[in-house]
């Protein structure tokens, strides 16, 4: 995954629900220094709550990406994020070169 263009990650999940897996694994594929590069806020719900898990991303160009971790697998999420990140990377390359 290309985490370079992420500026804001908001995650909310109940670890005891099966649907939280994508959100949790997304958290684990962020690089070790992710906290210095972007704003990450994690909220854990109690095991009895039936609230939907949330995975909201914000990119540096201001794009807001709301991902539904219930239906999407982690591979699909990574694909989705990378698609936009590659576009931003190309724009950066063109402007700098």
């Amino acid at each position: 995954m290309i985490p370079r263009f992420l500026s804001d990650v908001t995650i909310k999940f109940n670890p005891f629900s099966r649907k939280a897996k994508t959100a949790r694994i997304f958290l684990s594929i962020l690089p070790p220094n992710a906290r210095q590069l972007m704003k990450i806020s994690v909220t854990q719900l109690p095991s009895s709550s039936t609230e939907k898990p949330i995975l909201d991303l914000k990119f540096k160009d201001g794009k807001d990406m709301k991902i539904d971790p219930e239906t999407m697998k982690i591979k699909e999420v990574v694909e989705e994020v990378d698609r936009h990140s590659r576009m931003l990377a190309r724009a950066e390359d063109l402007s700098s070169g």
Binding site: P15, F16, R18, A20, K21
Partner: peptide, 10 residues
């Protein structure tokens, strides 16, 4: 056993 959903990720 109640911990199935936790058994994912590092």
């Amino acid at each position: 056993h109640g911990l199935e959903s936790l058994m994912a990720g590092p």
